[in-house]
C-alpha cells in the first residue's frame, strides 16, 4: 500500500512552500492561459512569453493543492529558457510519467512504458521535434509517486495541460502577428 511519503516527497514540499516563478507577466507580449480542475476547483494561470521559438519567461498564478502547485513550480523551472520543441518534449515526457497507472490497467508491461504514446501533444511546429527519451526530468521524477494515488494525477498534470495550451496560443499569436 502506498504511503504518504511516496506522495509528499521533500522536494515536492519544498516547491510547494517556496514556489518558483510565481507571479504575472504583462500581456501582451505574454499570453495568459487558465486551467481548471473541475473536480476540486483548483485553478492554474500560466503567463507565457514565447519569442524566437523559445520560452523566454513564464509565471504561475492561481491556487491549488501541494501537488498541483509544486508540479507547476517544477514545470516552470524545467521549461523556462527552453525552445518550444524542448518544452513540448518535456510535457510529453512528464505526461508519460503520469500515465504509468493507465498503462498498467491496459496490461502493458511496467518497464517499457515511459516512452510510448502521447504523440498528440507534439504537433504545432516550433522547430524539429525533440524525442522525449532525451528529456531529463530531474526533480520532476519526484512526482512519480503521484501515480499511486490516481485521484491526484489530475492535480499533477493540470499545469502541464495549461502550458501546452499556452504554447499553442503563443505560436498562433506569433504566426498571425505582423512582426
Amino acid at each position: 500500500m502506498p504511503g504518504l511519503e511516496d506522495l509528499y516527497r521533500e522536494i515536492i514540499l519544498d516547491h510547494y512552500r517556496n514556489p518558483r516563478n510565481r507571479g504575472e507577466l504583462p500581456t501582451p507580449p505574454a499570453v495568459r492561459v487558465e486551467g481548471f480542475n473541475p473536480l476540486c476547483g483548483d485553478e492554474i494561470v500560466v503567463f507565457l512569453d514565447v519569442a524566437d521559438d523559445r520560452v523566454q519567461d513564464l509565471r504561475i498564478g492561481g491556487q491549488g493543492c501541494s501537488i498541483s502547485q509544486s508540479s507547476a513550480s517544477m514545470m516552470s523551472a524545467a521549461v523556462k529558457g527552453k525552445t518550444v520543441a524542448e518544452a513540448r518534449a518535456t510535457i510529453r515526457a512528464f505526461k508519460s510519467l503520469m500515465s504509468i497507472h493507465e498503462q498498467r490497467l491496459d496490461g502493458a508491461d511496467d518497464d517499457g512504458g515511459a516512452s510510448g504514446g502521447a504523440s498528440g501533444a507534439g504537433g504545432g511546429g516550433g522547430g524539429p521535434a525533440v524525442p522525449e527519451a532525451a528529456v531529463k526530468l530531474g526533480d520532476l521524477e519526484a512526482l512519480q509517486g503521484v501515480v499511486r494515488f490516481p485521484v491526484r494525477i489530475k492535480c499533477a498534470t493540470l499545469s502541464w495541460n495549461t502550458l501546452a495550451q499556452g504554447l499553442d496560443e503563443a505560436q498562433e499569436a506569433s504566426a498571425t502577428s505582423p512582426s
Partner: peptide, 12 residues
C-alpha cells in the same frame, strides 16, 4: 493547507 492535502493526510 489545501483541502485536497488535508483529505489525503486524513485518509492515511
Amino acid at each position: 493547507i489545501h483541502p485536497h492535502d488535508i483529505s489525503q493526510v486524513l485518509d492515511e
